[in-house]
Structure formats: structure tokens, C-alpha cells
């Protein structure tokens, strides 16, 4: 657990470092008088029309869902792959390499068939 205490300190000091740099710059920076043009959103000298929070492609959402599935998958595979070598070497005897391999295979097969389904449905085509 002590290692994670170090990581905790690192998170604190890292945020302090970056935040400190930003605050230092705020104190040191040269400032120009405020004007309407200065704070206008940069759209290559055009006047911005409407709000910038526009509707965008729904495709991003589908890719986010796919990412979620495969990221969780790698997390679930993690314990399996960590012990795999120890099981084949025989230092863990609760399970056998064949069982682990079949489990790995079934899990990956289900995920891959999901990917193939999405592929056939045309989800992966970016328009």
C-alpha cells in the first residue's frame, strides 16, 4: 500500500506544479486592455453565428460504446493473463493451462463476434 501513498503524493505535487505554472504566468503576463474583439471566438475572422455547442455526429457515440466494451474486456482479461505463465510453469495448481486457454478463447470469441456483427451492420463505416 505504501507505493500507492507515493502515487497519492505524486498526484498532489503534479497538480501543484502545473497549477503553480499557470498561476505564475497569470501574475507575470502582460495584459492588453479589454475589448469585444479580444474575447471573440476565433473563427478565421468571421463573426461567430450562434452557440458553439452544436449538434455533432452520432457516430462518436457508437465508437464510445465500442470503446467501453473493449476497454472493460482488457480489464477482465488482465487477471487471466497475469497468472497464465505461472499456471503453465506449474507454480499455481488450482487451475490448468488448458482451462485458462479455453476460457480466454471463449471470452475473446464472444467479443470478436460482437465486432464482426457491428462490422456487418455497417457501424464501423465512418461517413
Amino acid at each position: 500500500m505504501a507505493n500507492y501513498a507515493i502515487i497519492g503524493i505524486a498526484i498532489f505535487l503534479g497538480t501543484l506544479f502545473v497549477g503553480g505554472a499557470i498561476i505564475t504566468s497569470k501574475l507575470l503576463a502582460f495584459k492588453t486592455p479589454h475589448s469585444r474583439r479580444k474575447v471573440e471566438a476565433y473563427e478565421c475572422s468571421e463573426e461567430p453565428i450562434g452557440d458553439a455547442r452544436i449538434q455533432f455526429k452520432v457516430g462518436y457515440y457508437i465508437f464510445a460504446l465500442l470503446f467501453l466494451i473493449f476497454d472493460i474486456e482488457s480489464l477482465f482479461l488482465f487477471p487471466c493473463v497475469t497468472i497464465f505463465k505461472k499456471v503453465t510453469a506449474g507454480s499455481i495448481t488450482e487451475t490448468s493451462p488448458a482451462v485458462l486457454f479455453v476460457e480466454l478463447g471463449i471470452f475473446l470469441f464472444i467479443l470478436l463476434s460482437g465486432l464482426v456483427y457491428a462490422w456487418k451492420k455497417g457501424v464501423l463505416i465512418w461517413e
Binding site: 497538480t15 502545473v18 497549477g19 505554472a21 499557470i22 505564475t24 504566468s25 497569470k26 507575470l28 503576463a29 502582460f30 495584459k31 492588453t32 469585444r36 479580444k38 474575447v39 471573440e40 471566438a41 476565433y42 452557440d51 458553439a52
Partner: peptide, 21 residues
């Protein structure tokens, strides 16, 4: 370091300054 940080009108202050951190 010596340049001013410009915040565009209508930007979300909290998010705008948190994002680079």
C-alpha cells in the same frame, strides 16, 4: 510564460482553466 491567457466570451471558466491541467 509572459503571454496573456485569453478566455473567449461564452467559454466555461472552470472547464477552460482545468482542461490543460
Amino acid at each position: 510564460l509572459f503571454k496573456e491567457v485569453l478566455k473567449p466570451a461564452g467559454a466555461d471558466s472552470f472547464g477552460f482553466f482545468l482542461a490543460p491541467i
